Computed example of a mutant assay.
Amino acid sequence: MGIFDRFKSQGRHKAKQGSDTAEQRMNEKTGGKYEEQIDRGQQRAEGSLGMDRDRDRPEGQ
């Protein structure tokens, strides 16, 4: 894996962590009332940014 691939992978990982943290905080703020809508919004945002969950690879690959 080249150095640019490694940076790309690290950036994708950081973005995913930020997305998950934001989802968790929104669910806490709303008491889980809008959990399904928040999850769908997160999936759409990740999809439009090329961070689809189906394409995630285990670390180190």
Rank of each mutant, 00 (worst) to 15 (best):
F7P: 05
D54C: 02
Q37C: 03
G18R: 12
H13P: 03
L49W: 03
E28A: 15
F7Q: 11
S9V: 08
R57A: 00
E23C: 02
R12E: 13
K33R: 13
Q37K: 15
G60W: 04
E59S: 11
Q43F: 12
L49P: 01
L49Q: 10
S48E: 05
T21C: 01
G50Q: 04
G31M: 14
K29D: 03
S9L: 09
D39K: 15
Q42I: 09
G18T: 03
D56H: 09
Q61M: 12
G32D: 13
Y34D: 05
G41Q: 13
R25P: 01
G11P: 05
D56N: 09
E36L: 10
Q37Y: 12
G60C: 05
E28S: 14
G32N: 13
K8S: 10
R40K: 15
K33V: 07
G47Q: 14
Q37A: 11
G60R: 10
D56I: 08
R44M: 08
L49V: 02
G50F: 02
I3T: 05
K33T: 09
M26Q: 09
D5Y: 06
D39R: 15
Q42P: 04
L49C: 09
Q17L: 12
D39V: 12
G50S: 06
G31E: 15
I3L: 13
F7G: 00
T30M: 08
R57N: 05
R53T: 11
K8Q: 12
A45Q: 11
A45V: 13
Q10A: 04
D52H: 14
K29C: 00
S19T: 10
G60K: 08
N27T: 08
R25A: 08
D52G: 12
E46H: 08
D54I: 10
Q42Y: 06
K29P: 00
G31Q: 14
G60P: 01
M1F: 12
I3S: 07
Q17V: 06
K8P: 01
T30Q: 07
G2N: 12
S19C: 09
T30A: 02
E36W: 10
Y34E: 02
D39M: 11
G11H: 03
S48K: 14
Q61C: 05
Q61K: 15
R40L: 14
D39C: 04
E28T: 13
A15N: 07
R44D: 06
G18H: 09
R57D: 05
N27K: 12
E59L: 06
G47F: 00
E36P: 00
R6A: 09
H13D: 01
T30S: 10
G50Y: 02
Q42L: 07
G50E: 01
E23S: 06
R12N: 07
G60L: 00
D54E: 14
S9E: 09
L49T: 00
K33L: 08
P58F: 07
D5V: 02
D52I: 01
T30C: 04
D52V: 07
G47K: 13
G18P: 01
Y34S: 01
D54N: 11
D39G: 04
D5G: 14
I3V: 04
R53A: 15
Q24R: 11
Q10D: 03
M1A: 06
S19E: 10
R25M: 12
G41T: 08
E46C: 02
T21D: 01
M51W: 11
T30K: 02
A45G: 05
Q17P: 00
G32F: 12
E46G: 01
